[in-house]
Amino acid sequence: MNKIIMLTAALVMVLGLTWGGVALATPQADQAIWQSYYQKRFPNVPKEDFINGVYAIDPVSRESWEAIEEFPPYEMAISQGEKMWNTPFANGKTYRDCFPNGPAIAGKYPYWDKERGMVVTLPLAINECREANGEGPLKYKKGPIADILSYLRYQSRGQLTKVEIPEDDPKALEAYEKGKQFYFARRGQLNFSCANCHVQNPGNLLRSDILSPALGHTTHFPVYRSKWGEIGTLHRRFSGCNKQVRAKPFKVQGEEYRNLEYFLTYMQNGLPLNGPGARK
């Protein structure tokens, strides 16, 4: 127990407090500390298994999850998404015209776009493609966006998370630091940071929910959640985790959540993509 507290303190210090500017840790150092923290806390979990979220650390719920995965509740979404991918827009073009390397392109996102000075996520790129072709944008939390994401991420299964923070652009590092700051900042009437739950308390019970480790948190989205009864996106999850501490959620695909995704995905570098996923 004491060891865990010390490790947590070290992690919060190194990751959480150095953005204050005194001893700025590099993203590489953050990532190494992050990954080894969870591996030390759960020494019996093989690193790659963290992509399975809470099921990596809870053998009891893992069993029913494995049964669910035999008839995946996201299968319809994948085939819906495939249809979208292959159906021409009104102007005769298709998604392939925007993504010539598609559909297995998820490993490329999120990335830093130097020209525009911003983090580009896959859902954002999808809507930009639509709008460039005269189609209306999709809503970002669920529905058709989750369908096409399910298809693209399914096709990308097995690619490794590989987010880059280009060293020749200080604004990329700044976006990363903002995402990190977001992760460790307390907010809402209940005064929680993301780290309070997913860094300090993974494996502990919040009432009857076992909190998942944040190692692997981005690999499997979009996700079918039994609680939602449907598939939702990563930013929908961010928004939900903000709301449950009575904080006002930020705009999905707004700058805050994109930077958060940039930081959080960078922390998972090296882990294979396994979306779409299924969770409680």
């Binding site: 009437q189 005064n191 929680f192 309070n196």
Partner: peptide, 18 residues
């Protein structure tokens, strides 16, 4: 609770008017 432990994950029931 954050007075005794700055890293506490217990909500401040009085201070935040919960």
């Amino acid at each position: 609770a954050t007075v005794a432990n700055p890293d506490s994950s217990m909500p401040p029931f009085g201070k935040h008017g919960i």
